[in-house]
Design a protein around this nucleic acid. Sequence first.
RNA 1: GCGCCAGUAGCUCAGUUGGAUAGAGCGGCAGCCUUCUAAGCUGCGGGUCGCAGGUUCGAAUCCUGCCUGGCGCACCA
Length: 614
Amino acid sequence: MRRRGGAPVLGQLRRGVQGQRVLRDRLQAAEREGEAPQAGGLEAGDPVHERDPVSSEARFESRLIVVQEQLRAELVRVAVSLGAPADLVVELETPREQSHGDVATNLALVLAKTLRAKPRDVAQRIVAALALPAGLVSSVEVAGPGFINFRLAEGQLAGMLRAIIGAGAAYGRTAAPRGGPVNVEFVSANPTGPLHVGHGRQAALGDAIATLLEWTGWAVTREFYYNDGGTQMLNLAASIQARVAELRGRAAEIPEGGYHGEYIRELAGRYLAAHPGDPDAADREAVRRFAVAALREEQDRDLQAFGVRFDVYFLESSLYEEGRVDDTVRRWVAAGHTYERDGALWLKTTAYGDDKDRVLRRSAEKGGLPTYFVPDVAYHVTKWRRGFTRAINVQGADHHSTVTRVRVGLQALDLGIPEGYPEYVLHQMVTVTKGGEEVRISKRAGSYVTVRDLVDEVGRDAVRYFFLMRKADSHLQFDIDLALKRSEENPVFYVQMAHARMSGIFRVGGVDPASVTGEGVDLGALTDPSEAELIKLLARFPAAVERAAEALDPQRITTYVEELARAAHLWYHRCRVLGESEPVERARLALARATRVVLANALALLGLEAPERM
RNA sequence: GCGCCAGUAGCUCAGUUGGAUAGAGCGGCAGCCUUCUAAGCUGCGGGUCGCAGGUUCGAAUCCUGCCUGGCGCACCA
């Protein structure tokens, strides 16, 4: 079993996804019952990001994938005729080496053992038996230890270009709807202060993962969960009360576990202004409500400025109000998974592989309340009951200890929830550097750098891109100096510049991009090696999206798009478009348009603008 | 002590889920502007893939053990 960042095997999940219609019905029922509390989210305000799924007829089946499926089907047929098992999976790959052709398979290497023959001999037999449709490939050869390399016919490349242009904004999206509703939970910051850089990484990651899933056929809900009750809120209120006392000239100390940022002083002043009837802020509940509302509003504003919006805001307090926390406890007790010790109630999580049992209800002298992971489990039960066949949580790796507890807690409820539910994408820490020095503090929050600081300093696109350009598992160094550079060193700039250059060709030439379809154009006029290279990269985009979605890893898209931008800059430098002979100009305009489409789509997928000029 | 993550060029990082001669950017060196953005492009040099075993046609990738760094191991959230 492959476990990465705690995420379960996707294939297993898919197999576990059954009864989708039942689940959808459940979801609708849940909606009718108002099971999805919404706490006044953001308006859909950002015009730059078009997130609505493209209508199904506009969806696009990648040309390369079509070609590959034809190849694959024929390879399976031949392999089986040679004695391979019928459930054989044929792997096709795009070789990185030009001389290895456009598509390659290791089929012969895989079969060599079962067929008890040398890999190269097997390859020869496969090639001899292949009966491919005319016009599909121009050459087939056996190479290296036994690879079979295919070179696509020229007409296939030309067809890809036309197909990309035809698909437009839909290029890269999967044609068929795939799975039931998926819940992507991210940020989930408690309203105790401004969002920090870790939240920023979560916001960028969660949003991009959600988009990746949408593009590959999943129905996605973006969800934000927050703790609006409990001890942290009391600490928050008490911290503000202390600052109020200060403002009124009395000595007061921020309580143990309280909050020290400048924003607490700010909130204290605002509370007094808004509550003339409570000059000493004696009403702690009123202070708490005021602070939560103010901080939630600020977080929403920052997220909106970051271009992220949520479909559902889920309040922890609703779980208590609706009795879901008590239900969860009762169900564990009834199932016999609990016991009492030292006055507390324990859940036998070791029965499910946890390293120790967990207290689920504190002893009387400790207040007798449920521990924090109980509402957490109850919350995930609502995800399941709301019909989400997959739930993906994006969190900092410092929370990884909750993974086992939540999963085990769900298993112990015997509700038929899959073992790997929910999936987790855990990310490592973010450090911010400027002038070669680590930046640790912000004026407003005091002890940490906020998302707002970064967005104000380098702009939204740079922040989003930088948060996405490393895999979640790696520590991320956010270099403010680099993010500000307007040169090739800065990957955001480099990629956006490639798009601007493609756009510039149409602007300067006075050509409407929409008028360039590639139809009736002789793409044989594209003879420069950089052109074939570019087309092949363009053709790979849907596969890149597919793999990134499967791995829940947007970093694969940043890597891809940087490679694409490099190929585009190279082509731009080597090949002039405007003013060339008519057939060449027409063919190159088609290539420029297709390149622009893919750059724009990749940028949209990452939540970035695709500027026409810079 | 236990668990999770990381370790690849001087630096920052990729590496198509086990493939072919391990790649890119920066930095260094050498070049390229009557041109749709030189805000760019080309070439050169640079490696014990942390270490040691194992698995197999084949390992940076999978397994085991160690080393180093980060994070986490509450009747806190």
